[in-house]
């Protein structure tokens, strides 16, 4: 009996060690994290424990911009100003790499460590960012689980019987398109569509004249789903009769901005929609033959 008890104790203590080992590692990791950027907000919510999140940017609650807007409501909000962030005594601040220069420099000057995340331009960056956050907040195992889930969802979203790539164009408000070197270009490629911006050798985010779009008349037109914001002239081009006459009858896919604005695992939702749109267009073309 005693022997049994002893063994149980050894097993239990081993279990305790196993279970608490990562936690003791996390002790060195950040415990009060503030995020100043829509994309890092969501990365943080995905990877970190509830108790580690001190505040998120106010954009995280905007349901047109953030997939996780509902969950973001559980946390305090910041507006990216150095003063309020310093007063919340964070031990780590997450920020984007192109914004809020002054606030970030001031926080660094005050001795707070700030980690900056560049905009994601490739699908490969998504697992990398998940792992990076995982290391910062001491939740590597959680990050690995998310990476594995992302990779299987990606494979699922890309599943198609289609042999050839279907021509597609990305067309945003103000006639902007996304070519090589953008996340959207990779998303379109991952869905086995051929981005016409590459054919027109437009790289990065560039304006695409309506005339050229009409001349190429791609089978799939990827647009941003209208948000609840008040109307703007910028969207008028999407109602142009020339566009209606060529593309809309074939297949416009309006994707919510929130799925594509950040490089997050939710991007697989956009890839899935585009893969399906490509399948539909290809099957229509086959039945016409």
């Amino acid at each position: 009996m005693k022997k049994h008890f002893r063994r149980a104790l050894i097993v239990a203590s081993a279990l305790v060690f196993v279970v608490f080992a990562p936690v003791s590692g996390a002790m060195a990791a950040a415990q009060r994290v503030v995020s100043m950027n829509l994309c890092t907000d969501q990365l943080l919510m995905l990877v970190a424990d509830k108790t580690q999140i001190a505040s998120l940017s106010h954009l995280a609650r905007d349901e047109t911009l953030a997939v996780m807007s509902a969950r973001a409501r559980n946390y305090p909000v910041n507006h990216g100003r150095a003063e309020e962030i310093y007063l919340s005594r964070p031990d780590l601040v997450l920020a984007g790499s192109y914004t809020q220069f002054n606030s970030i420099n001031m926080l660094r000057g005050l001795g707070i460590s700030v980690e900056q995340f560049a905009p994601v331009r490739s699908l490969k960056d998504i697992p990398a960012n998940l792992r990076r956050i995982g290391a910062l907040v001491g939740r590597e195992a959680r990050a690995e689980a998310l990476v594995a889930a992302f990779q299987s969802q990606l494979a699922e979203a890309q599943r198609t019987e289609r042999a050839e790539n279907v021509p597609a164009a990305i067309y945003y408000a103000n006639s902007y398109t996304a070519g090589q070197g953008t996340l959207m270009d990779e998303v379109v490629g991952a869905a086995r569509l051929e981005n016409i911006a590459d054919r027109l050798s437009l790289t990065g985010t560039r304006s695409l004249p309506l005339e050229l779009l009409v001349m190429e008349s791609p089978d799939v037109l990827v647009t941003a789903r209208k948000t609840g914001h008040p109307p703007a002239l910028a969207h008028e081009v999407l109602r142009h009769p020339a566009l209606r006459r060529t593309i809309h009858r074939q297949g416009e896919v309006a994707i919510h901005t929130k799925y594509t604005i950040c490089g997050l695992p939710f991007i697989t939702r956009a890839i899935e929609m585009l893969t399906k749109a490509g399948d539909v267009v290809a099957s229509q073309a086959d039945s016409r033959k």
Binding site: L210, E211, V214, S217, H240, P241, A242, R245
Partner: peptide
């Protein structure tokens, strides 16, 4: 005929 050229000329230019 609704060809791309026709759309460009008639509806844009």
């Amino acid at each position: 005929d609704g060809s791309p050229q026709a759309v460009v000329m008639q509806d844009i230019r």
